[in-house]
C-alpha cells in the first residue's frame, strides 16, 4: 500500500494549516485506535474509478484479498455486488467487511445468492466515470479488514477529525503513556502528556501510528 499523499503523483491541495501527528507504539496498543477506523477516516486518491481500481491499483490491496476476504462492501451504505463496476466518487464512504454470519450476512454479501432480499439498498450506480480525478474517500474498516488492513492504513496515515483522535488518546491515556515510544507533532518530537495538553482546535488531522 502506498502513502495516500504520494499515490500516483496526485496533485492534491495542501491544507492551509495541516497538523500531523505521528505516534510509535507497542503493537498491543493498535486496538486502541479501532473506533477511529470503524467510524471512518478519509484518504486521498484518484476517484471516478471502480472499487477494485481504487483499492488495488492505488492502494496496493491484492485482488485476491479483495475478492476472497472482503465479502461485504458498501458505498454510501448501499450494498455492492460488483467491485469492478461500482464507482468510487469524490466524497464517497467506502466500508469494508469480511463475510458475515446469518441470513443478514448472506443477504448483504457481494454478489450473493440472497442479494435480491435487499434490493432496495443495493448499489445501482454501476457505471465507471469517464475520467478520474483527485478526490477524497471516507473508509470504514470492520472486523477482519479492521484487524488486517487497520495497522497498514494507520502506518501510512489517515485523515480524521482531531477531536475524535484526542478522545481516543484520552480514553487510553494510561496505556498509551506507557506504550507510546515516540511522539512527533508537526515534525517536532514531543511527549504524550504534552500532546494531550495541546489545544487541538477543530478540523481534521493527519495521523500516523507506527508499531515499534
Amino acid at each position: 500500500m502506498t502513502h495516500p499523499e504520494k499515490s500516483h503523483g496526485l496533485t492534491i491541495p495542501e491544507r492551509t494549516s495541516p497538523r500531523h501527528i505521528s505516534l510509535t507504539v507497542e503493537a498491543s496498543l493498535i486496538p486502541a485506535f479501532s473506533q477511529l477506523l470503524q467510524n471512518g477516516f478519509w484518504i486521498k486518491g484518484n476517484v471516478g474509478c471502480s472499487i477494485k481500481s481504487f483499492l488495488c491499483e492505488q492502494f496496493g490491496l491484492s485482488p485476491e484479498y479483495l475478492e476472497k476476504r472482503i465479502q461485504t462492501i458498501f458505498i454510501n451504505g448501499d450494498a455492492v455486488d460488483d467491485v469492478e463496476k461500482a464507482t468510487v466518487e469524490d466524497g464517497a464512504t467506502l466500508s469494508l467487511s469480511a463475510a458475515m454470519p446469518g441470513l443478514a450476512g448472506a443477504v448483504l454479501r457481494k454478489g450473493g445468492y440472497y442479494a435480491a432480499m435487499r434490493d432496495q439498498i443495493s448499489f445501482k450506480g454501476e457505471t465507471t466515470s469517464a475520467s478520474m480525478q483527485a478526490g477524497r474517500v471516507v473508509v470504514k474498516l470492520f472486523n477482519m479488514p479492521l484487524q488486517e488492513l487497520g495497522p497498514v492504513f494507520l502506518e501510512h496515515g489517515i485523515w480524521v477529525e482531531s477531536n475524535k483522535v484526542k478522545d481516543v488518546l484520552k480514553a487510553r491515556a494510561d496505556d498509551l503513556q506507557r506504550g507510546c515510544r515516540e511522539v512527533i507533532a508537526d515534525g517536532r518530537k514531543s511527549e504524550f502528556k504534552q500532546l494531550l495538553e495541546m489545544d487541538w482546535g477543530g478540523g481534521d488531522i493527519f495521523l500516523q501510528v507506527k508499531i515499534v
Binding site: 470503524q38 461485504t72 458498501f74 451504505g77 450494498a79 466500508s95 467487511s97 458475515m100 454470519p101 446469518g102 443478514a104 450476512g105 448483504l108 435487499r118 439498498i121 470504514k140 470492520f142 472486523n143
Partner: peptide
C-alpha cells in the same frame, strides 16, 4: 455474534 452490528448499521438496517 455482535460482529454484525457495524455491518447492519452501515446497511442502514
Amino acid at each position: 455474534t455482535n460482529i454484525l452490528a457495524n455491518v447492519i448499521n452501515e446497511a442502514g438496517a
